[in-house]
Design a protein around this nucleic acid. Structure first.
Length: 709
RNA sequence: GGCGUGGUAGCUCAGCUGGUUAGAGCGCAGCAUUCAUAAUGCUGAGGUCGGCAGUUCAAGCCUGCCUCACGCUACCA
């Protein structure tokens, strides 16, 4: 992959139902931006695509809630995303959207190809159906009580209270969000990709880096947590996965396929293919062939994502690409972990976030400052933390005091001593290097040291270690400060002018080097620095390589005789008040009290009720069910017999706390084995909106076995 | 419960295939210095490297058990 001819970079498509926050930036965009900008200045043939993910049920639901149309929702967020990305200087080559016709065509073509190649298994299964609305219900259209935290309004795919991933059949008391009806199970047909058949090659590909027996990538280059999570999935066994859904907002399954009416492509047959459509759109506008980037073995494909997306980009999407047959597979998926905010998880629903669009408005002209701190605190290997205090410290101490200060010192001194003209110097002058000891070094040695540091920085970036790279740049800046400090040109100028010339020339080279290396990280500041130095190069197509070649030959980056401009400050301090204001804006709102009390179920007749045999009972024994978190195995005394019942209350009650409790039992419920234990009935529990439980018991002192009606 | 990743100075983090007194930045305490946005440089204090046991001549790095955080996954009749 190192010798790949081209690089294709993708960043996760942001989902168009909410604004972007810093967590998004930290996950998939800023890291990619640094990488791509760097490869551009290395002269690589590199393309970076992204776009808005605009399909799916969550968008329809938001539209219903806000009494508008899905179209308006996606248009609004597509606009906001572009504003945010442009504001943050995120330099996509193309930003597309999945509602675009080109994308619909592309993903349909893709589906068609898999269909025609017989890659799908058609399966009929039972899914929830809303009889009143006359349609199948997407996961998002079903609400009910979360089986994990007992939150009363969990969605069929996820509980927003506890974050668990769910499937609709997990929900207790499911109801349709369209009509409030209790959904019924009904048969529906979908196309499944038999991922279980892909386990073997996926394992070889991920663990050994081999594809079809050939070296594909160096597995050691992948991050630990990425490979770890993939292995965990593979070890757990893959299952066929439906590639279509019963949805009404998305890409249609190609209509010529029998049974396609009403079916839409599932998100993983849709969103990642958005990378392909985005590339097509870019190619069309730039006179390129998109196939060079997707279907040519000498292309390195890189997916920048957050950790929530690992499985889909490392297992499902590769499986889809391989099933198609013509596409390259990713050579690396440098997934980042999560960024927390002031000690808490970022949460859209609790409004615990720094919104990118807000930041841009509140802190104008402070884009590089945010980029700097976000890279510094990037969750590359583990979750990280954004704090406003940390942000302020980093800006004031590192950007202002160290970096900007060094650059300013050099520019000011050069203007003061040489009217801004970079001095000629004698290469044999002995000067102090930044080593900290008393040894003097030749100018050449120090210049080589700078070259080495730049090379090291570049290598950090190639290894996706952006924090390391940024750290290295700050190290270069510190060394610059040390060179000035040890050589004291302000004193030496009175004693040995020739010596000062060598020192100042070296410092100017340091500044020029910093201005170029800083480009990928802080594009605006780097550009301003270049202007200060009157060294204005684009650094967008290989200029960095030229510069490094020059240095390797011992030639100056900026030649003696070159005139630089007057000094001006690159960064300014951020005051306490500004930080206090931003911190004050952070107010945890309670998870929007999803007041939606669980709707009353459909009426039943008296006969239905009398079918249930409720009995009072007393808990005699209680033990935890082994290898289960939530289950207690209870032995109940009904007076005339004893029963074993398994109940999901272990997180609320310790076994010893429930012994002796009187409960109400559904005594004629068909027995069922749970975790190997046969449960003969169920006990009734009341629950409140916080998920607390309470036994539904007869008044004190009642003996067991009585009938309840 | 299973699996994965992480737990290193007050804070944020580095520590390569195990090898001498465990590092950086910030913060803190001294000292030096003035070209610079009261910036910079030097010196110092601070760690039983989550805990316990083991392998080894030698462990932050390997093994086992435990614990905490984050994520994935199973059980809720």
């Amino acid at each position: 992959m190192i010798d790949a001819k081209r690089i294709l970079v993708t960043s996760a498509l942001p989902y168009a139902n909410g604004p972007l926050h810093i967590g998004h930036l930290a996950g998939a965009y800023l890291s990619a931006d640094v990488y791509v900008r760097f490869q551009r200045m290395m002269g690589k043939d590199i393309v970076w695509v992204c776009g808005s993910d605009e399909n799916g049920a969550a968008i329809t639901i938001k539209a219903i809630k806000e009494e508008t149309s899905p179209r308006e929702i996606v248009d609004k967020f597509h606009e906001l995303f572009q504003e945010a990305f442009q504001g943050m200087n995120i330099s996509f080559d193309y930003y597309h959207r999945t509602s675009d016709e080109l994308h619909h065509e592309t993903s349909q073509e893709f589906f068609r190809k898999l269909y025609e190649n017989g890659k799908f298994e058609e399966r009929t299964s039972e899914q929830y159906y809303d009889p009143k609305a006359n349609q199948f219900l997407a996961d998002r259209y079903i609400k009910g009580t979360c089986p994990k935290c007992d939150h009363p309004s969990a969605y069929g795919d996820q509980c927003e209270n506890c974050g668990s991933a769910l499937s609709p059949t997990d929900l207790i008391n499911p109801s349709s969000t369209l009509t409030g009806e209790t959904p019924v199970m009904k048969e529906t047909t979908h196309w499944y990709l038999p991922l279980n058949e892909d386990e073997e090659w996926l394992r070889e590909w991920i663990v050994d880096g081999k594809l079809d027996g050939k070296e594909h990538h160096e597995p050691k280059d992948w991050k630990n947590h990425v490979v770890g999570q993939c292995k965990s999935w593979l070890d757990g066994g893959l299952h066929p996965r439906a590639m279509t859904r019963d949805l009404d907002w998305g890409v249609d399954v190609p209509q010529e396929i029998k049974g396609a009416e009403g079916k839409k492509l599932y998100v993983w047959m849709d969103a990642p293919i958005g990378y392909i459509s985005s590339t097509k759109a870019w190619a069309a506008e730039n006179g390129k062939d998109w196939k060079d980037y997707w279907q040519s073995d000498d292309t390195a494909l890189l997916h920048f994502i957050g950790k929530d997306n690992i499985v889909f980009h490392c297992i499902i999407f590769p499986a889809i690409l391989k099933a198609h047959g013509d596409y390259v597979l990713p050579t690396n998926v440098p997934a980042n972990q999560f960024m927390n905010l002031e000690g808490d998880k970022i949460s859209t629903s609790r409004n615990w976030a720094i919104w990118v669009n807000d930041y841009l408005k509140d802190m104008p002209g402070k884009v590089d400052e945010l980029r700097y701190f976000m890279v510094k605190a990037m969750p590359e290997q583990k979750d990280s933390e954004f704090t406003w205090a940390g942000f302020q410290d980093a800006v004031n101490n590192e950007l202002v005091n160290n970096l900007a200060n060094f650059l300013n010192r050099v520019v000011v001194l050069t203007n003061k001593y040489y009217e801004g003209v970079v001095p000629e110097f004698d290469e044999n002058q002995m000067i102090f290097g930044p080593s900290g000891d008393d040894e003097t070094s030749f100018y050449d040695n120090e210049y080589l040291r700078l070259f080495d540091d730049l090379s090291a920085t570049a290598q950090f970036i190639r290894d996706f270690d952006f924090r390391g790279a940024l750290n290295k740049i700050m190290e270069i800046s510190s060394k610059g400060n040390q060179i000035l400090q040890f050589n004291e040109p302000w004193k030496m100028i009175k004693e040995d002018e020739e010596n000062v010339k060598a020192v100042m020339n070296l410092c100017v080279q340091y500044c020029a080097a910093i201005s170029s290396m800083l480009r990928p990280f802080l594009p605006t500041a780097a550009e301003r620095l270049s202007q200060l130095l009157n060294f204005d190069q684009n650094f967008e197509s290989g200029e960095f390589v030229e510069m490094m070649d020059k240095m390797a030959m011992g030639d100056s980056i900026i030649e003696p005789g070159h005139k630089i401009n007057e000094a001006s400050h690159l960064f300014s301090r951020i005051d306490d008040e500004v930080i206090a204001e931003q911190k004050a804006k952070l107010v945890k709102t309670e998870a929007p009290a999803v007041v939606a009390s669980t709707p009353i179920k459909n009426n039943i007749v008296f006969d239905d009720f009398t079918k249930i045999d409720f009995r009072t009972a007393t808990i005699l024994e209680a033990v935890k069910v082994p290898k289960a978190n939530k289950l207690l195995q209870l032995t109940l005394d009904l007076g005339f017999e004893k029963r074993t019942v398994v109940s999901g209350i272990a997180q609320q009650y310790k076994p010893e706390d429930v012994i002796g409790k009187q409960v109400t039992l559904v005594a004629n419920l068909a027995p069922r084995k749970i975790r190997g234990v046969e449960s003969q009935g169920m006990i009734l529990m009341a629950e409140n909106s916080e998920g607390q439980l309470s036994f539904v018991s007869p008044a004190d002192g009642w003996e067991a076995g009585n009938v309840v009606s």
